[in-house]
């Protein structure tokens, strides 16, 4: 399946990557070659084969729904780009 300029821009928007038109043109070539390689999978007979998500077919263990982590807000916010009074600051969202 080929990838086109519009597909690259769509994926970039979904992934919140601010690439420009010229970048997208460049990625069309690279991504097309990758998808061309990947397309070989379409020829493999997988009729009746269950998808494998975890190499040991393990399932997620469950635990009681209890708070077990200590509050380390200050430590975690120490590496944030912009905080004030314990909040993360971002540009105004609601006018």
């Amino acid at each position: 399946m080929a990838i086109e300029h519009a597909d690259v821009l769509r994926a970039a928007h979904l992934a919140r990557l601010g690439i420009d038109d010229a970048d997208a043109t460049r990625y069309v070539g690279d991504l097309s070659r990758i998808l061309e390689m990947v397309d070989a999978l379409q020829g493999v007979d997988t009729e009746g084969v269950a998808p494998l998500a975890h190499p040991l077919d393990a399932t997620q263990p469950l635990r009681a729904d209890e708070a077990i982590e200590p509050d380390r807000r200050e430590a975690f916010q120490a590496c944030a780009p912009s905080v004030s009074q314990g909040y993360y600051l971002v540009p105004r969202v609601v006018e």
Partner: peptide, 25 residues
């Protein structure tokens, strides 16, 4: 970009699910 594209609507079965099936093989 590749990952976002292959997981996006309309492509998931053809790519991700297929690759997971091949992974089992």
């Amino acid at each position: 970009l590749i990952g976002t594209h292959t997981l996006s609507e309309g492509f998931f079965d053809a790519y991700y699910k297929k690759a997971q099936q091949v992974r089992r093989l």
